[in-house]
Each structure stands twice: as structure tokens, then as C-alpha cells.
Simulated assay, not measured.
Amino acid sequence: MKRALGVSVYPDHSDIEKDKAYLKKASECGFSRIFMSMLEVTEGKEVVKEKFKSLISYAKGLGYETILDVAPNIFDELQISYDDLTFFYETGADGIRLDAGFDGNKEAKLTFNPFELAIELNMSNDVAYLDNILTYEANVPFLYGCHNFYPQEGTALPYDFFERCSVRFKKHGIRTAAFINSQAGKIGPWDVNDGLPTLEMHRHLPVDVQTKHLFATGLIDDVIIGNAYASDEELELLGSLNRYQLELAVEFTEQASELEKEIVLTEQHFRRGDITDQVVRSTEVRKKYKNDANPAHDNTQEFQVGDVVIGNDAFGKYKNELQIVLQPHSDDRKNKVGQITEKELLLLDFVKPWTKFRFKEK
């Protein structure tokens, strides 16, 4: 499934012109999806419709898909029914996210709405919610899944729980989404905003590391910035990110040679299928560079987790093989040429047998 980047906007807490400027910038950076909160509306039905319609129409002109976040109280507030989604269709939205669930049959029926609006489900529950809906023969192409975000510090999901919840959707081929946290964003749906990530471990990480992590899991198709507004630098950083292959940020040592930098930065690496616990081995490069001399340097210390090493001239047939250290060890036949940045070390868990990966200089 194609992967997408998204942003969130909160029309009841922001200025529409600022929202439009934000959407334009994000669009220029390759973002194509909007999470638009409707949880806080207090104005009348027609006023709400026109406000959201104006912003969604502008977003459509930029190529966005817009999903409205709704809850049962919104239907009461606006005096509309789950059995008639005309109101949301008339705003121009592409779908609605159900913050609360029903009995399974109701959700399945909603996927057959005449407007072909997507029905997005809350993924952040480790229960057979989706399975129940599917037993009622839901219209699967119009069924999405999206995790929650968590404004309060310390309340977002732990990774193992997130994984279990996500697998329930991914195994059925449902399009999935999760939220990351901008370190610049101050706007969310509530008066508490300690950031808006899905995973607690992401709350204080840079946006690119959060995004790489979610894509590397293979469980999330769309990554959405939960809070507004992300900085231009954050948007540009995510826009340049490789969505389909893990790119690890590396900091080179002073003694790293031009040859070693070329091996690290220009080659397509993959981990050997017959793996070892000690290192990630990229072995094809040694064949290409077997005739290139590589004198020893930075080779007498104990290598640490995340160090990038390359076999030197003393390593025989393994000269110029690239490795990423997973367990501390010493071997003077290897040169330390760099290290994975500390905040990206968590990504090493996702370099599995045959995983393709590249490096990008920090």
C-alpha cells in the first residue's frame, strides 16, 4: 500500500487563513492527508458546515484527502444522524473517523453510505473490534484504521500494545494511520497539549525519527502530525524522507576516508539473510571494493552499539565489508567510520534479515 504523510488542523481553535497557509506549505512538501477535528464545534449546523466546507474545498484544490474526526456528541450538537451522512458529504470531506464504536453491524452499514465516504475506526484497542465489523460484511475498501493521539504526558501507548493493536488491522489489509508529535506545534483539540503522539516513546523525539520508526514497523501506512502547526523545517524534513526504505542518519569519524564514505553513502545495503547477533552485515559491498586499499584507523577501541565499521586491509576477503554493531566487541581488522545518531538507535531493531537500508550523513 502507498504511504502518505498528513497534518492535522483544528478549525475551532485556529485562524482559517493560517490553516490555509499551513496546508499550502505542507502540500509543497508532499503531504496529502488531513486529520480535521470536529470534536469541539459549538456553532450552529449551517455555520459549522460553511466553515469546514471552505477549508476542505481549499485543501481539495491542493490534492488533500480530508478525514473529519467526529464523536457522538457532535451528532447531537448538529442534530444529524449516523444513518444520514449528507452533512459530512456536503462539507466536501472524504471520510469520517469514529471516535467511539457501535455494535459492528452499524459500522459495516456505514461503509455502504451512498457518498462513498471512508469510515475510519479507532485502532488503539487490543480487542476484536475490527473482526466483529468484518463479520457483518463491511465494504472493506471504505474501511480505514487510525490510532488515537494522547495530549497528556505519560499517557500515550507503549510500543508492544501499539504493535498488537496495529497487527489486528494490518493482517486484514486495512489502511492504517498513526500520529507523531511536532516539537513546534501548540494547537490541539483540548486545553492540555503536551504533544500529540500515538506512542509515548515518540513524544520528545524529532519528527523524522518518529516517522522512520512508524514506517519501519511495516504496520502503518499514513503518518500524521498530530498537533499544529509543525515548523517549516519539520515539514521539509519529512518531505525529503524516504517512506519506503529505512535511511539511517550517520555521523562520520574524523578519520573516515573518502572510500569509506562512498561505501556508506552511495551503496544499496541489505542485511544478510543468515543473521548474527553481533552485527548487521552488508556483504555485497566488499565484492565491489575488493581491490580498493583500506588502511587501518580507529580500530583498537571497543566498538559500541550503533557504530558503523568497515573491514580494513588486514581482514582478508572481508576487507571493505560494512557492518553496524549490535553488541559491543573489539576487532582491530575493522575501522570505525561513523556511528548511527543516538536517537535513531531504536531503528536498529527493524533491520531484519534481508532488510534493505541506506545511510544519510547527519
Rank of each mutant, 00 (worst) to 15 (best):
R168L: 11
F169I: 03
F169K: 00
K170S: 02
K171M: 07
H172R: 08
H172P: 00
G173P: 09
I174Q: 00
T176H: 07
A178R: 00
A178D: 04
F179M: 08
F179T: 08
F179L: 07
N181S: 15
N181K: 07
S182A: 01
G185C: 09
G185Y: 02
G185L: 02
G188R: 03
G188N: 15
P189D: 14
P189I: 05
V192N: 10
D194T: 06
D194F: 08
G195L: 05
G195D: 10
P197W: 10
T198D: 11
L199P: 13
E200R: 06
E200G: 11
H202V: 06
H202E: 13
H204V: 04
H204Q: 06
L205N: 07
L205M: 15
P206V: 10
V207D: 14
V207L: 13
V207P: 10
Q210C: 14
T211W: 10
K212C: 13
K212D: 12
H213T: 09
H213P: 05
F215D: 02
A216S: 15
T217C: 12
G218S: 01
I220Y: 01
V223I: 12
V223S: 07
I225F: 13
I225N: 08
I225L: 14
G226F: 09
N227E: 09
A228V: 05
A228E: 11
Y229P: 02
Y229R: 09
A230C: 11
S231P: 04
S231C: 09
S231G: 00
S231W: 02
D232L: 04
E233G: 00
E233L: 09
E234S: 04
L235R: 02
L235F: 05
E236K: 14
L237H: 03
L238I: 06
G239N: 03
G239S: 10
S240P: 02
